[in-house]
């Protein structure tokens, strides 16, 4: 029944991959606008999820209230990260920005551990419906909700970027930050709001992931940062479409690798693919030498 296994793995991979895609969308928005890496992205999500979990454990808050707490919590913590790690730094201090976001990663994670010291905490499940049977394949209902939510959010973000005034401003800042400032776009405000938006999308991703697992572990911050980064890089950096493709690709790849090779090798395969793509596919990526040079010339001469 190898064909069934393949199909089932692919299906499972797509479902998990949809959560990676959501993480990658948030990462891509931040990277696009800031041109800098936000290592505290995963911990931001962790903060939101932990606040929601604490509300669940302490008051047994209903799931929609928890959803609101997670999303708003992530957005507020995202704002904090933006204030401390990104707003004060110009383009010239990209490394400082990134290292500052790492410092806040450590800080947020320790704060979260004070909130909920146990390694593993319960989270309300999304649905308790039984899995759907499609021919020989099984499909978890909550996974289906996650996929649907991903597509919905991706569609909403795409529409927002393409059709609204603020979306247009974001794209302008991504393409031509200096020109955007000249035509009167308040670049700093756009950056801040993008950050909040991306963190909220991340919070939503965190909520969906925690709810389908019905638990949260202390690893969620690190997990979200690395998975989101890898998915974003696989997608080629810079577009919502690429982020979705990267996320789904990573999910499917991991599902197959896990089935055939076990969980350790699964992670190795994902990193290996990323390494090979970066190292041996220079034409498709921005890292190519000639392009680097002309870009630098265009920018500076």
């Amino acid at each position: 029944m190898a064909a069934v296994d393949l199909a089932q793995n692919t299906l499972d991979g797509l479902m998990i991959g949809s959560s990676y895609a959501l993480l990658a969308i948030g990462f891509t928005l931040i990277f696009g606008v800031m041109r800098r890496l936000n290592l505290a992205y995963g911990p931001t999500i962790m903060a939101g999820v932990y606040l929601g979990t604490a509300a669940f454990i302490s008051f047994g808050a209903p799931i929609l209230v928890i959803l609101a707490i997670v999303v708003i919590g992530a957005a507020v913590v995202g704002l904090y990260v933006e204030r401390l790690c990104f707003r004060p730094f110009g383009e010239a201090a990209r490394t400082a920005s990134m290292v500052a976001s790492f410092a806040l990663w450590m800080q947020i994670e320790e704060a979260a551990m004070h909130l909920l010291p146990r390694h593993m905490n319960p989270f309300p499940p999304l649905l308790s419906a039984p899995p759907l049977q499609i021919g020989p394949l099984l499909l978890r209902a909550d996974h289906l909700v996650m996929l649907a939510a991903t597509l919905l959010i991706a569609g909403a973000v795409t529409y927002f970027l393409a059709r609204t005034r603020f979306g247009l401003a974001i794209r302008a800042v991504i393409d031509q930050p200096r020109a955007a400032a000249i035509v009167g776009i308040h670049v700093q405000r756009v950056m801040m709001l993008t950050f909040v938006l991306a963190s909220a999308v991340g919070g939503l991703a965190g909520f969906l992931i925690a709810a389908t697992d019905a638990q949260v572990t202390a690893m969620i911050g690190m997990w979200a940062t690395t998975k989101g980064l890898v998915a974003m890089m696989l997608g080629g950096l810079g577009s919502v479409k690429g982020a979705i493709a990267g996320g789904l690709l990573l999910g499917v790849l991991e599902a197959h690798a896990q089935w055939f090779l076990g969980p350790q090798v699964r992670d190795m395969v994902a990193w290996g693919l990323l390494f090979v793509l970066l190292a041996f596919w220079p034409g498709g990526l921005m890292g190519s030498k000639a392009l680097d040079r002309t870009m630098a010339v265009g920018r500076r001469v």
């Binding site: 890496l37 992670d267 190795m268 990193w271 390494f275 970066l278 190292a279 220079p282 890292g287 030498k289």
Partner: peptide, 24 residues
């Protein structure tokens, strides 16, 4: 394999290698 990459590409390639080595 990686030195002609720059910025985030280099950072991610080196991280990927390090994670591969850790899992190895």
């Amino acid at each position: 394999a990686t030195l002609r990459l720059s910025g985030i590409y280099f950072a991610m390639a080196t991280l990927a290698f390090a994670e591969i080595m850790r899992i190895a």
